[in-house]
Amino acid sequence: MKLTALLASSIFAASLACAAEFTVEKTATGGAVVKVDGQVFAEYVVDQANKPYLWPIYGPTGKSMTRSYPMKNVEGEKQDHPHHRGLNFGHESIGGYDTWAEAASFGKNPKTSERLKHLGAIKHREFKELTGGKSGVIYALSDYVDPEGKVIITEERSLTFHADGETRTIDVDIDLIASQGTVTVDDKKDAGLSIRVPHSMSVDAKQGGKIINSEGHQDADSWGKRAKWCDFHGPVEGEHLGIAMLNHPSSFRHPTPWHARTYGLFTANPFGLSQLKLQTESGALELKEGERIKLRHRFIFHKGDEKAGKIAEAYEAYAKETR
């Protein structure tokens, strides 16, 4: 099913957003801001890096649910991996070019000069839809380009926002389309749909943060494991809050492997089968002209741990939807 059809079925529970009113408007810098009942929920930023991303994102209690760096310096935050911007998608090698990292990722290390030569970008082209109401929708088209601006593939991205008193939800539906001919999508560890959680929530902060997935793997043991969902929860500004990412059964290579790190990175990566040590043979694939990879995920920003957030139940409802 193409994204244009998905937009018509984006409301997954009528009661979820009954009390919320959304507005979605363009920003002065070419992105879009989503507000719920007049308050910012999330901003789609298109002009600050080599890929678009969502930042900030505010959870159900009004707390910021991603690390602020590198967009903003906050005392006490870890300032590593500057390409871990909010909620984003990237891949180290599609058609030989890298949209996961950015120039600041490499510093002055001469060993990384070769990777700099292959640094690409995801260039926002246009919004096909920006709508509010009982949910918010951002539907964007982007081009993956090489350093000279030549298009490698195209992307359709639908972001659908919901809210109620207990949770806030973002559906991220991405189609990667071989619009320019056959292209190689490589087996890479650094690839997929990511969010960088607040530092206080990270396991390494030792303040009670925890990773757990649908199969019961926890913390560092969740890395490289396949699971239907994964949840990261811990303290944020005096409250115990969580972020769950759900992988829909229709998504490419479901159940997805997870590149989840105790320092706070949280990535659904169905591409890096050998680099995530799931198999010895490469998981690289040739995407023929006109073919597409369909990626379907739901983020749930919730109170408490995965049990309080009823993430297992939420996944069962999500899995029954047509995406």
Results as ranks from 00 to 15, higher is better:
T131D: 05
H91Y: 10
V40Q: 15
P60W: 03
L116K: 10
P60V: 00
T61F: 01
N73H: 09
F89D: 02
G107R: 04
V137I: 15
P110E: 10
G107W: 03
D47W: 08
Y97I: 13
S68H: 15
K108D: 11
L54Y: 04
S64E: 12
A121F: 03
E77M: 06
K108A: 07
V46C: 11
W100K: 06
L141H: 13
K117R: 12
G96P: 04
G90Q: 03
D98N: 14
H91S: 09
G59S: 12
A140I: 05
H118M: 12
F106W: 07
A104S: 13
T61I: 02
A103E: 14
S68L: 05
I57K: 01
L54P: 02
I94W: 00
P110K: 08
G76Y: 08
A103T: 15
S142W: 02
F89Y: 15
P70D: 04
M71Y: 13
P52F: 00
A103F: 12
Q48V: 15
S64V: 12
L119D: 11
S64A: 11
V40Y: 03
V36T: 08
G136A: 08
G38A: 13
V145W: 05
F89L: 14
N73I: 11
N50A: 11
A104H: 09
S93V: 11
G132R: 13
E43F: 02
T112G: 00
V74T: 11
G76F: 07
G132C: 14
F89Q: 04
S113C: 05
T131V: 14
G90T: 05
I57R: 00
Q48D: 06
N109H: 09
I122S: 00
I138M: 06
G59W: 02
G62K: 13
K35C: 12
Y53R: 03
R115K: 10
K72E: 14
V34M: 05
G90V: 01
Y139N: 03
Y97G: 05
Q79N: 15
S142P: 07
K128L: 07
M65H: 00
N109F: 06
R67L: 04
M65I: 09
V137M: 14
F89E: 02
H84T: 00
G86S: 11
F41S: 01
E114G: 10
G62T: 12
F127P: 01
T131F: 05
Q39T: 14
Q79C: 15
S135G: 00
E43L: 00
V33I: 15
T61N: 07
F127K: 02
P56K: 10
Y44H: 13
V145R: 02
M65L: 10
I57P: 03
E92F: 08
V36C: 15
G86F: 00
L141G: 02
R125W: 04
S105V: 03
H124C: 09
H91W: 08
A101H: 11
A104N: 13
G96T: 09
Y139Q: 04
P56S: 15
R85Q: 10
P56A: 15
I94R: 03
E43P: 02
G133S: 05
R125V: 11
K123A: 12
E92R: 14
G62W: 12
S142C: 15
T66I: 01
